[in-house]
Design a binder for these strands. Structure first.
Length: 478
RNA sequence: GCCAGGGUAGCUCAAUGGUGGAGCAGAGUCUUCAUAAGGCUACGGCUGUGGGUCCGAAUCCCACCCCUGGUACCA
């Protein structure tokens, strides 16, 4: 038995959660459940990325105090997790005191190592956006896309910089050797070539004015706040007590075994974060799992397109396990996956209602009619007699392929029932076959445990024995 | 622009030189234990475009078109 520490990317809490968040929640959760079933001591951490200037701007637009606005959105995220049957063992808010102290400790460690220095940063600043822009990001008039007609100001500001360049070689070694393993390999290559281009030092602070006095204060400098990524990544540590008076939890769990993230934030996790940790003399995470995004009817999800999918509505309509199943079985973690409600419905009917649900119903009824009695031996661990590949797929995070194996078993059982026609047999002749079928169903239930925990639970309860009764459908056809 | 990955049946994907496969959807058929469910069968593809190498190309080479990601201080 070993320990396994998983982190979910910390969502922005400047808007309510969409289906992409649901995808990642479920992916993290299934890893957590898998390791728990393997007997590992396992925890999953998430938190709120609250210190970004965009939160302040969004709160302004909503006409609410920042903290209140953030807390409201955060609640929506935890409600989503609950509805998805996703359990976070830790939830760390970036606005909380302990996180501030923890991040200041990280800063001081880097500073002590001589990796933080002051320098003037000059850039084109859009007052409307309160952001710096690169020339390439502007339109032909040299104006930002959000605020046409508004000239950008050239602003110079003293910032603290982090000596990222110093860690080029170490990072390369770390990643190329897989000591920090990046999955899938394409993302690893991308990071490697990024580092090989040469790393520049990065600014890790903002003036108070620009940060709107929001965020973690820089130690010993009242005029500056930390750049949000410096402290945001540290949620992974502050959430388990890094920098607190008693660091026993931190010592127990750190380093993270896997950071689960979306492709948009790869660089922060694969380059900046390990560099900060190396500088601070702390352990670097063992691996990073980079998943892709969900498109909607083939299009990117975006507020301007108005096609943002609210997962809670889908859960109300189709159920928790149906959405979990779609996210895990029909969306490859390593390629953009498409979503539409029509597809969800097709999958629900084909795989869940007609596939798993119907198989369970027909076997249960046959067992009931024939008064089959089975003993409740804790039959086989999940994985053992399932078709080959289940565990391997899981360890490679190919959840869709692992589920495919399970659904082949379902198909096989349907074929076996049609071939053997147990309903034509006498009770005595049918019983041995039905016992096998019942055990096979329990076996499948064990297999789907990490993916569809509620459904697995229901099936195992129904087939606990000694008697087995027909029950209402697991997934009523829609 | 440059770098990486991709373009295969209506949809989602598999097949890296040797007669193009599966699932879903749609069709027919068998069956009734089951959620008008399940089984079986057939249908369905000039493998992005144009060239080339080879006895033979989805697979290798060249050119072009389209999609996705990266190209740093933007989360």
């Amino acid at each position: 038995m070993s320990k396994f520490f998983i982190t979910n990317a910390i969502p922005y809490v400047n808007a309510k959660p969409h289906i992409g968040h649901a995808l990642e929640f479920v992916q993290s959760d299934v890893i957590r459940r898998f390791h728990l079933l393997q007997g590992d001591e396992t925890v999953l951490l998430c938190g709120g990325d609250e210190n970004a200037i965009k939160n302040v701007q969004a709160a302004d637009r909503a006409g609410k105090p920042v903290q209140e606005f953030i807390d409201e959105n955060t609640k929506l995220f935890s409600q989503l997790a609950e509805k998805l049957n996703v359990h976070f063992d830790f939830w760390q808010k970036a606005s909380s005191k302990n996180h501030h102290i923890s991040s200041q400790k990280l800063w001081e460690l880097c500073n002590k190592n001589g990796d933080i220095y002051k320098q003037t940063y000059t850039g084109l600043y859009c007052v409307g956006c309160e952001l710096f822009y690169e020339k390439e990001e502007l339109d032909e008039n040299g104006e930002c896309l959000e605020h046409p007609g508004k000239k950008l100001e050239e602003v110079s500001e003293e910032n603290y910089f982090f000596k990222l360049s110093k860690y080029e070689k170490k990072l390369l070694e770390l990643i190329e050797s897989d000591d920090l393993k990046i999955t899938p390999i394409g993302r690893k290559n991308e990071v490697v070539s990024f580092i090989k281009q040469g790393l520049k030092d990065i600014s890790i602070s903002r003036s108070n004015k620009r940060a709107r006095n929001w965020g973690v204060p820089v130690p010993d400098d009242d005029s500056q706040r930390m750049y949000v990524w410096f402290d945001a990544l540290n949620i992974y540590q502050s959430g388990i007590g890094f920098g607190s008076e008693d660091e026993s939890l931190y010592k127990k769990w750190w380093p993270a075994d896997v950071h689960v993230i979306g492709k948009g934030i790869t660089r922060f996790h694969a380059v900046y974060w390990p560099a900060f940790l190396l500088s601070a003399g702390l352990k670097t995470p063992k691996s990073i799992l980079v998943h892709e995004y969900i498109t909607v009817n083939g299009q990117k999800m975006s507020k301007t397109l108005g096609n943002v999918i609210d997962p809670t509505i889908l859960i109300d309509r189709y159920g928790t396990d149906a959405l979990r199943y779609y996210c895990l079985a029909k969306i490859s973690p390593f390629a953009d996956g498409d979503f539409s409600e029509e597809k969800l419905k097709d999958v629900y009917n084909a795989d869940l209602a007609n596939g798993l649900g119907n198989l369970v119903a027909r076997v249960a009824k046959l067992c009931e009619t024939n008064e089959v009695s089975i003993s409740d031996i804790p039959h086989r661990v999940p994985n053992v007699s399932l078709k080959g590949g289940y565990i391997e797929y899981f360890e490679r995070y190919e959840f869709n392929l692992a589920l495919e194996e399970l659904w082949k078993d379902i198909k096989d059982l349907d074929v076996a029932i049609n071939t053997e026609k147990p309903w034509t047999l006498s009770k005595e002749n049918a019983t041995p076959l039905l016992k096998i079928l019942a055990y096979q169903i329990k076996n499948i239930a064990h297999g789907i445990k990490p993916f569809l925990p509620d459904t697995a639970e229901k099936i195992l309860k129904q087939f606990k024995g000694p008697g087995i009764m027909a029950q209402s459908p697991l997934f009523p056809r829609l």
